[in-house]
Every structure is written in structure tokens, then in C-alpha cells.
Write a protein that binds this DNA or RNA. Structure first.
Lengths: 243, 243
DNA sequence: GAGTGGTCTAGACCACTCA
DNA sequence: GAGTGGTCTAGACCACTCA
């Protein structure tokens, strides 16, 4: 048996939701782990199953947990790969979807420029790591990315050969640095491409490109990564439901 | 007392959700109307309040209903104006948000081109109405729109002076034609602007523009309107959460 | 003060999973 | 067959709204 400590003005299911979210943020359960069953939680916190379900429902709706009937409730491993496909229709000539290759151009310790420090909620000139890379499909560059990471959490990245890892960074962050990306906020705009990115993307200067800024956070809501990507406008397509 | 008719393999709350959605689609309740109270629904369908709540919860999550504690549950009037602001940061020099003016360039009965017929789920060459207009802020054109409507439902639009109405079309659809937009699907891309739209938007040919395609549907899910809008890339900004 | 949605209880029975 | 989440009941009490 256990007591819910947070603000007693909140409802019981809200307080249980907060407690569970906090335990996930503290790595008490890792992505892929099962959390206690609904029966166990209702015994532990002396709540009815309906109230426990409401707390778990909230975290399921937030994308933090997922239920599997007959098996249990699990901490969700975010599927950023599919989110990438939502934004870009990267396809081979045969029309197949595939993860674009990654070519790392540079990775180096630098001091955070103002905009980066602000996005990562760090003091001005804080130590960060900057990665520049290009994503390719069929040897064709389709996306140019600048990535910024707080150096305190990601120092281990500087000691490995990033080029020898797979094209997806988030599994590397987890394996090498123990940092798990829980969710992200993205902002989309478009612009005329400048000379530097025109060369990287092999398109004419001033052709239209889509600009995606992404701030990734951990389960506790702390900023983990800020990136700005530029991509071919013709390859870009984003869909949304509006109500 | 009343019986739920739809597929008995579905759960009770799903079937009640479907029944309520169907009644809203049939205009049994209009936007702004209250639906019966939870107690009334639970008597009418012989269901416990928990089950009724689950059905109503589903429609609230879909954005079709909204609850107001102490007052009742209401059919939601979609707030497309705010969705517009999600996509474009239209601001006056003073930084205030405002609805852009509308200047109608043409409204005429035509036969649907293939792409339009397909989007509106009409046969090829079906009769439609095409509206071309420009949206302006501080007398500056910021958005050029082509709008297509099925003529059978919107014939009354041809008999009024659209230029004398307000800048928002959806209230006009409702008032003049009795057609209510329930939700919409939007797709975003970017491109280099062609000569025609460069002139409309008063930007240089080949400068980057954002292209938004929107298919609006009624509560029954039938297509009501298809539009394609082109806007200044510098004025465009879209945000999304990714999990 | 009557009526509304919001939270919560203490279960029962079911469908699904897995050894 | 034991354990899990999914659905459902029949309420109780509360906070809020409005005449």
C-alpha cells in the first residue's frame, strides 16, 4: 500500500497519472517494460479499478503507455520512424518506403548560440554538441540536418564513431548515452534555399525547401535535442485532421 | 425507452456513440444544441451512466460534442477560424491576429475536372461551383484560394452576392445552403509559385509558396468542399506534437 | 434549489494471451 | 487454466450553473 503525495486538490486519477508519469520519467520502468497490473495498482493505492483505468487511459492517450489485452500495459517506445514518414514521402523508384541513409558531415563540441540555448533551456554559451548530416535515398540527398545536444548528457557521443552506427539517432542516444526521447514538438515552414543548403541538397539556389524544427524531450519534459532540417519541397507532404 | 440497432458485435458504448453520431449527422440536433442529459440517455437506452459517459467521451474526443459542467453536453460548432491561425501567422503591424479580408474574384457553375470530382466523390464532369478568391491583410494579398463545391447542395450560393457577406465561408454555407462543415482533412506541401499565382499574391515568380489542400466533410462524412490555397511561405508556420 | 456533468466505488463477466 | 485488459452495472457524492 502506498499514498499519492501530489496536490490534494487534484482528482485521484489525476494524481495517480502524475505519479506513474513521474516513475516513468525516473526510469523506474524502461520503454518496453510492463507497469503493474490494474489490480495491483488498485490494491497499492487503495483505489477502485475504474479510477485506476482513468489514470492509465490518460497516459495511453498521451502516447506514453500502450495496452495489450491479455498481456499487460507497457511503457511505449516512441515510433519516430513512422512520424518521419508522415512528413515526407520518401520513396524509392519502386515506390517502397524506406529509412533514408545518414551521412555524418561533422560532430563537434561547441558553445550554444543564443537560439539553441533558448530552445534547449540552457544558459547562453552553454556547452553543446553540434552534428551536421545529410539524409539520402538512392544516393540522392533529400534532407540536410543540423542537430544540437546538451553536452552534459551526450558527452559519450564524442567518443564513438557515429558513422558506423545506423541511420536513426534516437536508438543511439538510448544505447550510448542512456537518454530516451519521449516526444517532440515540430514546427514547419518553407523558404528559398540558401547557397550552403543548395549545395548540400544538390538543388538550384533559391528553389523552395521545407524547414522543420524539432524539439525532442525526455519523459520528464526536459529538452534533449533541437534540430533544424531542410528538405526538397517536392518530396514533402504533410497531412492533418482539423476540427 | 429505445433500442440500439447497429451491429450487436460492437460494444454497447460503441453502438450508442454511433447512434448519437448518426442523429447529429441527420440534423436532429444542430450545432449549439444540447443533446439529452446523461441521465436521460441512460433511461432511454437502459444503460448505466458509466456506459453512456464512455459513448459521450468518444464523441467529445472526436471534437463532435463538448461538455459544459452544470449546463449540459452540446453539439460543437467547429472553430475553423482558429485552425486557420494554426497554419498562418496572420498579423497586423501591431502584432494583432485578425481574420483576413476576402475578395471574391469569380464564382461560377462549371463541370468538375477529374481531380476535383475524385476528391468530392462525384462522377466525372459532375456539376460543381468554382469560387476563386484572394485573402488580404492590411490590403496585402496573403492567400489565393480555389474552392470547389457540389452544385446540388450549394446552388443557392449562385443567387446571392457573396461579396456582401463576411470573409468566412462556412457560416455562409450554413446560413444560405443549410450545409454544416463538421471536420476537414488538410494536406500541406510547398512549391515555386507560377505566374498566375505570383500575380495574385504579388510576389516574384518562382518564390516559395505553401500549398494547402483541404477536404471538408459534413457530420455524415460526405465531402462538402475541396479547396486549394497558396500562401506566402514567410507568413506560414505550422506546429505539431509528435509521439 | 433543481439540474447538470465530474469523480469515484466495488464489484461482475468477458475476450484475449501464454505457458 | 491463470492472469491480463475490456466492458458494464448501479449507484453515491461533489462542483458547477442558472433561475
Amino acid at each position: 500500500m502506498n499514498a499519492l503525495s501530489s496536490d490534494a486538490r487534484l482528482s485521484l486519477y489525476q494524481r495517480l497519472r502524475d505519479r506513474l508519469a513521474q516513475q516513468i520519467a525516473n526510469n523506474q520502468w524502461r520503454p518496453g517494460d510492463a507497469i503493474p497490473t490494474e489490480a495491483a495498482l488498485s490494491t497499492e493505492y487503495q483505489l477502485s479499478t475504474g479510477t485506476v483505468r482513468k489514470a492509465v487511459d490518460a497516459l495511453v492517450n498521451e502516447g506514453i503507455l500502450e495496452r495489450k489485452q491479455g498481456r499487460g500495459t507497457f511503457v511505449r517506445r516512441p515510433q519516430f520512424q513512422s512520424s518521419l514518414f508522415r512528413f515526407f514521402r520518401f520513396q524509392t523508384a519502386a515506390g517502397e518506403r524506406q529509412v533514408p541513409e545518414s551521412r555524418i558531415l561533422s560532430i563537434e563540441p561547441v558553445l550554444a548560440p543564443t537560439a539553441v540555448a533558448q530552445a534547449l533551456e540552457l544558459p547562453a554559451d552553454a556547452p553543446v554538441i553540434r552534428i551536421v548530416r545529410v539524409r539520402l535515398l538512392d544516393a540522392q540527398p533529400i534532407l540536410a540536418e543540423q542537430i544540437w545536444l546538451p553536452r552534459a548528457r551526450f558527452r559519450a557521443l564524442l567518443d564513438i564513431n557515429l558513422g558506423q552506427e545506423g541511420p536513426l539517432l534516437y536508438p543511439i542516444y538510448e544505447k550510448v548515452c542512456g537518454q530516451v526521447v519521449a516526444y517532440a514538438e515540430e514546427t514547419l515552414t518553407a523558404e528559398s534555399v540558401d547557397e550552403v543548403h543548395a549545395r548540400l541538397l544538390q538543388v538550384p539556389v533559391n528553389s523552395p525547401v521545407v524547414v522543420i524544427e524539432r524539439l525532442a524531450r525526455d519523459y520528464a519534459g526536459a529538452p534533449l535535442e533541437w534540430r533544424r532540417s531542410r528538405g526538397h519541397a517536392e518530396l514533402f507532404r504533410y497531412s492533418a485532421d482539423v476540427r
